[in-house]
Nucleic acid binder design. Structure first.
Length: 854
RNA sequence: GCGCUCGUGGUGAAAUUGGUAAACACAGCAGACUUAAAAUCUGCCGCCCUCACGGGCUUGCCGGUUCAAGUCCGGCCGAGCGCACCA
C-alpha cells in the first residue's frame, strides 16, 4: 500500500490552480457574489500559526461558497507600512523597503504552500506608491469635504525616539519601544473628524447582526455615547462663566463645588498671577495615565479665588477648584461636584471639607435624616432636599432641569462622546507621506492631484533620532504649487491604520486609476465575511467603518458599512518550556519522556513545562508552520487547525493532535484507494437497496446536510467530527457486489471527497482524479441533500419515570401517542419502577420521549 | 469600579436550542499482526457500589421554574477579556 505523498501532491495541485487561474474572479453577474476576506498580515518576516488558522478558516468558507455557486472574491495583500521596518533598518542597517519586500516575497511563498484559494492577481501592498498615492488623493478629497483639519493638540511624546506615540503605544506611561517616560507635548497634527460620525457609528452597530456581540459592545463602549446636559455657571464677583457637562443634572441641588481641568482656559488665566497654581498645573500634567498611577492618585484640587452662582439657589455660592481628576479632553473640561452621589466628588469633598447634600433619597429613607458616609449613594430613589424637584423621579427631575435651563438660557440637553477625533500624523519615515505643503504666503496647500503620489525618498539615514524625512537634505523643499515660492512639505506620514482602513475596497478594483471604481466597488462591497483577530475589535474595525462612510461621502462608493459579517477567531496557544536558568526553550528543542519528565534535546538538562499561552516569540512557544507543512503537508495542518476547538476559542497546538490529523489524512486516502470501485460511476441509481446500503446512503446525506450547515455557522470542529463518522462508516462498509451496494459506496466516496475539499483541498483534488471526477474538485458543485434518504423508518423513543431514563423503545416513526403510551407502560423495566404507584400524568412527545409521573 | 464572555470525563470538546449528557477525537489500557519496533486492526475507557445482571451519582456551587434543565430565572464562587479619574 502506497502512502499519500502530501509534499509532491500539494505542490502539483497548487501549480494546477495557478496555471488555470482557478481562483481569479471577475464580476460575473449570473451568480450571486460573495466576498470573503481575512485581515491582511503585516509582513514581519514569516507566517505564524495564527495566520495559518485565520486564513484556513476564511479559505474553508471561500471554497465552500464557491462550491455552493457563489462568485467568490477571496483576495490577499500586505499591511506593509509600520515601525518594525524602521527598527530593522536601525538595527540591521537594511533599507525598510528592501526588508519589507523580501519579507513579502518569503511570506507569499509560504501562503502559496498552504493552498489557500486567493486571487493573487489582486494582491496589493500598502507601501506601494500605486496604493498610497490613491490614499493621498482621498485625503485631499476628504479635506475638501470638510472631514480633515489641522490643530495643535496634546500628544504623547517619546523624548528618546523623538516621535509621537499613539495612545496604544504608551504602556504604563512609558514608550513601548524606548521605555522612556512619555511626555505631554503640544504639536500640530492632522485629524480626521471621526467624531462627526460618532452617532451613526454607534447607531448602526445595531444593524450588524452578523458581528459578534462582544465586538459591538466594545465599540459602543469606545464610542461612549452619553446623554446629559451643559450648564453654564456665572461667577459671583465677575463676568466669568464656566460651562460644565453633566449626566446627573437631577442632582443640581446637591452641588457643592465646581472643578475644572488643569488645561482649562480659566486655570491658565489664574495661573498667570500664581506660581503656586502654575506648579499645581504642572503636577497634574505629570500625572501618569497608567492604571496604577490612577489607582494611587489622590484627588487633589487648587482652590481659585472665584465663586460661581448656583442657578436655582440664590444663597448658594460654589467654590471653584482646579482638580487633577478632571479631564480637559472629555465634555467641557469642567464639572459640578455633587459629593453625595459621585464617589470621586465625595472623596474630594471629604478632603476639602465641602458640603455633602443627599438629593436622591433611597426608598424607605427620610430626606431630612438620610446621610452619606464614605460611599457615594448611586441607588435609585426620589428627589429630596431639592426644592421644586422634591418627590420627583430621577428621570423627571432631569427633564425639568433641562426645560428650565433651556428656558433660562443657561443650559441645554446635549449628547457627549468618549470618542475623539483621529490624529493621523506620525513622525515616521515608513508610512504614506501626508500630501500637504506649507507656504509662508499661501498657508497650507494640498499637493495638486497631478503631482501625486508624493513618494518616499530612497536615500534616507537612520543615524539621527527622529523623522528621517525631516532630516533629508532636499526632499521636503518644494515650490508652492500656488505661488511658486519656496515652500516645505509636510514631513509627517499617515498613521498606518489609514492604510488598512480601505484596502478591502481597493481589492474590488486593484488596477483602477482613481482610488476606487464605483461600479466595481459597489458590486463586491460590503465584505460578506470578514475573519480576523479580536485584537482589532476597536481600532481597525472602527476606523474602517468611518473611512467607508467618508468614501461614500466623497462619492467613491455607495456602501457605508464595510463588513456585513465578522468572525473573530481565537488564538493559537502552546505549552511553554523553561530551562534550569529560567530561559525560554523552543518546543522543537524539548523531548517528553515516557515517565512524564521533559528534557532538552540539545543539552539534556531537565525542562520545566508551563501553562499553555498564546504563541509568542518572547516565550519561544512557537511552532513554525513551514516545518509542520514539510513534515505532514498543508492539508494535515489545515485539518488540525479546524478539528477539536471551536474556531472562536483558543486552540492548543499539540504534537499529538497534529499526528492524529495526519493519521486521518492517511486513513481517508487509504479508505478511498482500497475501496474505490471506479466502474460504479456508471451504475444508474437502482430502485432497491440493501439495509446496509440504505444506512450508508443515510449517513452520506446526513453528512452532506450537516457539514454544509456547520461550515456556514463556523462550526468547523463539528464538520470535522461528522467527517470522521462518515469516513468510519465508509471504511466499515462491506459491499456484497450488488448494484445497490456499489452505487451507495461510490456515492459515499464521491461525497466525502467533495465534503472535505474546502478543508483538505489538495487531498480532495487527488482523490477526485482517482474517482474520475470531472475537472477540478475546486470547481465542482456541493452535493445536494436528498432529504428522503436521511429519514429512518424506525426511531428510538426514550421512556422516563420521574424524568429518569428507564427504557428505550425501537418503534415505527410517527407512532401515535396512545400506542406509545401503551408500549411504555407495558415495558417490564418501566413496570418495576411504577409498580403499586398511582400514575398521575404521562407526557408523550412522539418520536422522542414518554415521561411517566407517579 | 463598570461592561462582556466562559465554567461539561485524564485532555480538546459535542449536545438538533428544554427532551437518551459525554457524539467525534487525543491520551491511556488490553489484545491481534510482527523476530522486534513503527504503522495498522479489534476491544475497553465519566465517578461510585457489584463477579455479573443491574443500581446510584454526575455538566463550578446554592436555590427556583418545569412532567423534564448542561440549556431558562435568581444568588454565589472561579477563570478570561475589554474599558476605566468619562462627570
Amino acid at each position: 500500500m502506497t502512502r499519500y505523498n502530501a509534499g509532491a501532491t500539494e505542490a502539483k495541485w497548487q501549480k494546477v490552480w495557478a496555471e488555470n487561474k482557478t481562483f481569479e474572479v471577475t464580476e460575473d453577474r449570473a451568480k450571486p457574489k460573495y466576498y470573503v476576506l481575512e485581515m491582511f498580515p503585516y509582513p514581519s518576516g514569516k507566517i505564524h500559526m495564527g495566520h495559518v488558522r485565520n486564513y484556513t478558516q476564511g479559505d474553508v468558507v471561500a471554497r465552500y461558497k464557491r462550491a455552493k455557486g457563489f462568485n467568490v472574491l477571496h483576495p490577499m495583500g500586505w499591511d506593509a507600512f509600520g515601525m518594525p521596518a524602521e527598527n530593522a533598518a536601525m538595527e540591521n542597517n537594511v533599507h525598510p523597503a528592501k526588508w519589507t519586500y523580501e519579507n513579502i516575497d518569503h511570506m507569499k511563498n509560504q501562503l502559496k504552500s498552504i493552498g489557500f484559494s486567493f486571487d493573487w492577481s489582486r494582491e496589493l501592498a500598502t507601501c506601494d506608491p500605486e496604493y498610497y498615492g490613491k490614499e493621498q488623493a482621498m485625503f485631499i478629497d476628504f479635506m475638501e469635504a470638510g472631514l480633515v483639519y489641522r490643530k495643535e493638540s496634546w500628544v504623547n511624546w517619546d523624548p528618546v525616539d523623538n516621535t509621537v506615540l499613539a495612545n496604544e503605544q504608551v504602556i504604563d506611561g512609558k514608550g513601548w519601544r524606548s521605555g522612556a517616560p512619555v511626555e505631554r507635548k503640544k504639536l500640530s497634527q492632522w485629524f480626521l473628524k471621526i467624531t462627526e460620525a460618532a452617532d451613526d457609528l454607534d447607531k448602526e452597530l445595531d444593524n450588524l447582526p452578523r458581528w459578534p456581540e462582544k465586538v459591538r459592545v466594545m465599540q459602543k463602549n469606545w464610542i461612549g455615547k452619553s446623554k446629559g446636559m451643559h450648564i453654564t455657571f456665572d461667577a459671583v464677583e465677575n463676568d466669568k462663566k464656566i460651562r460644565v457637562y453633566t449626566t446627573r443634572h437631577d442632582t443640581i441641588f446637591g452641588a457643592s463645588f465646581i472643578a475644572i481641568a488643569a488645561d482649562h482656559p480659566i486655570a491658565a488665566e489664574y495661573a498667570e498671577n500664581s506660581e503656586e497654581l502654575q506648579a499645581f498645573i504642572e503636577e497634574c500634567r505629570q500625572l501618569g495615565t497608567s492604571e496604577e498611577a490612577l489607582e494611587k492618585a489622590v484627588k487633589k484640587g487648587f482652590k481659585l479665588d472665584l465663586q460661581m452662582q448656583h442657578p436655582f439657589r440664590d444663597d448658594c455660592k460654589l467654590p471653584v477648584y482646579v482638580a487633577n481628576f478632571v479631564l480637559m479632553e472629555y465634555g467641557t473640561g469642567a464639572v459640578f461636584g455633587c459629593p453625595a452621589h459621585d464617589q470621586r466628588d465625595l472623596d474630594f469633598a471629604r478632603k476639602y471639607d465641602l458640603n455633602v447634600i443627599p438629593v436622591v433619597i433611597p426608598k424607605g429613607e427620610d430626606a431630612a435624616t438620610f446621610e452619606v458616609g464614605d460611599v457615594a449613594n448611586t441607588d435609585p430613589g426620589v428627589l429630596g432636599n431639592s426644592d421644586f424637584l422634591d418627590g420627583m423621579s430621577v428621570e423627571d427631575a432631569k427633564a425639568k432641569i433641562i426645560e428650565l435651563g433651556e428656558a433660562g438660557g443657561f443650559g441645554e440637553a446635549t449628547i457627549n462622546y468618549r470618542l475623539r477625533d483621529w490624529g493621523v500624523s506620525r513622525q515616521r519615515y515608513w508610512g504614506a507621506p501626508i500630501p500637504m505643503i506649507y507656504c509662508d504666503d499661501c498657508g497650507v496647500v494640498p499637493v495638486p492631484k497631478e503631482d501625486l503620489p508624493v513618494t518616499l525618498p530612497d536615500d534616507i539615514t537612520f543615524d539621527k533620532p527622529g523623522n528621517p524625512l525631516d532630516h533629508h537634505p532636499s526632499w521636503k523643499h518644494v515650490d508652492c504649487p500656488n505661488c511658486g515660492k519656496p515652500a516645505v512639505r509636510e514631513t509627517d506620514t499617515f498613521d498606518t491604520f489609514i492604510d488598512s482602513s480601505w484596502y478591502f475596497a481597493r481589492f474590488a478594483c486593484p488596477n483602477t486609476d482613481a482610488p476606487l471604481d464605483k461600479e466595481l466597488t459597489d458590486y463586491w462591497m460590503p465584505v460578506d465575511q470578514y475573519v480576523g483577530g479580536i485584537e482589532h475589535a476597536i481600532l481597525h474595525l472602527l476606523y474602517s467603518r468611518f473611512f467607508t462612510r467618508a468614501m461614500k461621502e466623497i462619492g467613491l462608493c455607495d456602501v457605508k458599512e464595510p463588513f456585513d459579517g465578522l468572525f473573530t477567531q481565537g488564538m493559537v496557544c502552546h505549552e511553554t518550556y523553561q530551562d534550569e536558568k529560567g530561559d525560554w526553550v523552543l518546543p522543537e528543542e524539548v523531548e517528553k519522556k515516557d515517565d512524564g519528565t521533559v528534557v532538552s534535546r540539545v543539552t539534556g538538562e531537565s525542562i520545566k513545562s508551563g501553562r499553555s499561552v498564546k504563541m509568542s516569540k518572547s516565550k519561544k512557544n512557537v511552532v513554525d508552520p513551514t516545518s509542520i507543512i514539510d513534515t505532514y503537508g498543508a492539508d494535515t495542518a489545515r485539518w488540525f487547525m479546524l478539528s477539536d476547538s471551536p474556531p472562536e476559542r483558543d486552540l492548543e497546538w499539540t504534537e499529538e493532535g497534529v499526528e492524529g490529523a495526519w493519521r486521518f489524512t492517511q486513513r481517508l486516502w487509504r479508505t478511498v484507494t482500497t475501496m474505490l470501485d471506479a466502474d460504479a460511476a456508471n451504475i444508474e441509481e437502482p430502485s432497491d437497496f440493501s439495509k446496509q446500503a440504505k444506512e450508508l446512503r443515510r449517513m452520506t446525506h446526513i453528512s452532506i446536510g450537516s457539514i454544509g450547515k456547520d461550515i456556514e455557522n463556523f462550526h468547523f470542529n463539528a464538520s470535522v467530527a461528522q467527517t470522521y463518522k462518515f469516513a468510519n462508516a465508509i471504511a466499515a462498509f462491506k459491499s456484497d457486489g450488488s448494484d445497490g451496494d456499489r452505487f451507495a459506496l461510490y456515492e459515499a466516496i464521491k461525497s466525502i471527497i467533495l465534503l472535505t475539499s474546502p478543508m483538505m483541498p489538495h487531498l480532495a483534488e487527488e482523490m477526485w482524479t482517482m474517482i474520475g471526477g470531472e475537472g477540478l474538485v475546486s470547481d465542482a458543485t456541493w452535493p445536494v441533500v436528498r432529504e428522503e434518504l436521511t429519514q429512518q423508518s424506525s426511531v428510538t423513543v426514550v421512556v422516563q419515570v420521574q424524568g429518569k431514563l428507564r427504557d428505550k423503545l425501537d418503534v415505527e416513526k410517527d407512532m401515535d401517542k396512545e400506542t406509545l403510551e401503551k408500549l411504555a407502560l407495558a415495558s417490564d423495566k418501566v413496570q418495576s419502577f411504577i409498580e403499586g404507584k398511582e400514575i398521575r400524568k404521562i407526557i408523550v412527545v412522539p418520536n422522542k420521549i414518554v415521561n411517566i409521573v407517579v
